[in-house]
Amino acid sequence: MSTRYKVGDTVRWNSEAGVIHGTVTKVHLHDVEFMGRQRHCSEDEPQYEVKSAKTGHLAMHREHALHKE
């Protein structure tokens, strides 16, 4: 079963720096360029733009990489 996140949800994800906490800022359902790279998204496999609560940096992850807080 899949969890769907929405804008404003608080989530966490793993990175090289450890566990990062942040907020979903956008949900992408169609292919998009993000930080100079093409990201493949669809309604079946959306990607989530997330903002770190600590640094304010943006990242984009697939649903399986995020965990709801």
Rank of each mutant, 00 (worst) to 15 (best):
K6C: 10
K6P: 01
K6R: 14
V7D: 12
V7F: 08
V7A: 12
G8T: 12
D9G: 07
D9L: 06
D9W: 09
D9Q: 09
V11C: 13
V11S: 11
V11I: 15
R12F: 13
R12P: 08
R12Q: 14
R12M: 14
R12Y: 13
W13A: 05
W13G: 08
W13P: 06
N14Y: 10
N14F: 09
S15G: 15
E16F: 10
A17C: 09
A17L: 11
A17W: 15
G18R: 09
G18V: 03
V19F: 06
I20E: 14
I20H: 03
H21Y: 15
H21D: 05
H21K: 11
G22Y: 05
T23R: 12
V24T: 08
V24C: 06
T25E: 11
T25I: 10
K26H: 14
K26A: 12
V27T: 09
V27N: 00
V27Y: 05
V27P: 02
H28F: 15
H28K: 15
D31R: 08
D31N: 15
D31S: 13
D31V: 04
V32E: 06
V32L: 11
V32A: 02
E33S: 14
E33W: 07
F34P: 03
M35P: 03
R37H: 08
Q38L: 14
Q38A: 01
Q38I: 02
H40T: 09
H40V: 07
C41N: 10
S42E: 04
E43R: 15
E43V: 15
E43I: 12
D44V: 12
E45G: 12
P46H: 00
Q47M: 10
Q47I: 07
Q47C: 09
Y48A: 03
Y48Q: 03
Y48K: 03
E49Y: 10
E49T: 11
V50D: 00
V50C: 04
V50W: 05
K51Q: 09
K51G: 02
K51Y: 03
K51H: 00
A53W: 00
A53E: 05
K54L: 04
K54A: 07
T55M: 01
T55F: 06
T55L: 01
G56N: 00
G56R: 00
G56K: 02
H57N: 08
H57V: 02
L58F: 11
L58P: 04
L58G: 02
L58E: 03
L58A: 05
A59E: 10
A59T: 07
A59Q: 02
M60H: 01
M60N: 07
M60L: 13
H61L: 14
H61K: 12
R62A: 09
E63Y: 03
E63A: 07
H64T: 08
H64F: 04
